[in-house]
Amino acid sequence: MAQLSDIVNETVRAEIEEFLDRPEEIERNIELFSRASPAMQDIAAALIEGDNITVDRLTVQALADGVEAIEIMDDGLIAGMGIVGIKFREGFVFVPEVLVSARAMKAGMAHIEPILAASGVEPIGTVIMGTVQGDLHDIGKNLCIMMLRGGGFTAIDLGVNTSPDEFLEAVRENDAHLIGMSALLTTTMPNMARTVEHFKDAGLRDQVRFMVGGAPVTPEFGEEVGADGYGKDALACVELAKKLAAELRT
């Protein structure tokens, strides 16, 4: 069994020691980082610190050194973002810190994504993501999209103020079966229900799974509007998407 001391990077070690509390998460991260190369640990550490310039440089360097793109994504970028996600969930960091780390992840992914696309790696599924009609807030949705892409999904971003019909059209165009709806305002949350209803009217409700999220949204509200799942944050969104994608496959 791997030990914390097996992790070379001091920042990563300190982050696990200081901010992770749940035994299964500590174990999983020690396992993950201890088998990651020092270069991947460095990428993760820079990402946790929100240093986009270093992440960009180290990603380019790693690719030049022959490291596989998928390894950089999994062991460097996603692993680092995983720690940030836990810190966010536990209230150690807030949206600004997550945004800065997300910017660093984007810097790395800019080099990784074209390589993965060219190599024909099949996505787990396609998710249609949008902020519901009347709502122009997109931070949470954007974070979810980034994590979904990092998690192996193709995420189609419909942006903000997305009408029920735009969700429907995007599902048809992309042959997608997962939909993520976000709302920040209590005034716009009811538009989640309207979107679900629109799919019922179109006879497509049974072929898709709806995920909902956003600051004022609760699991109970999700159930009320007829969604299939609620994600509290971007990490939960990816887990939920994986679960629903697996359900759809069976």
Partner: peptide
């Protein structure tokens, strides 16, 4: 822009 504004509190 909310994203720029919030990120700016750090950067």
């Amino acid at each position: 822009g909310i994203e720029n504004f919030l990120m700016g509190t750090i950067t």
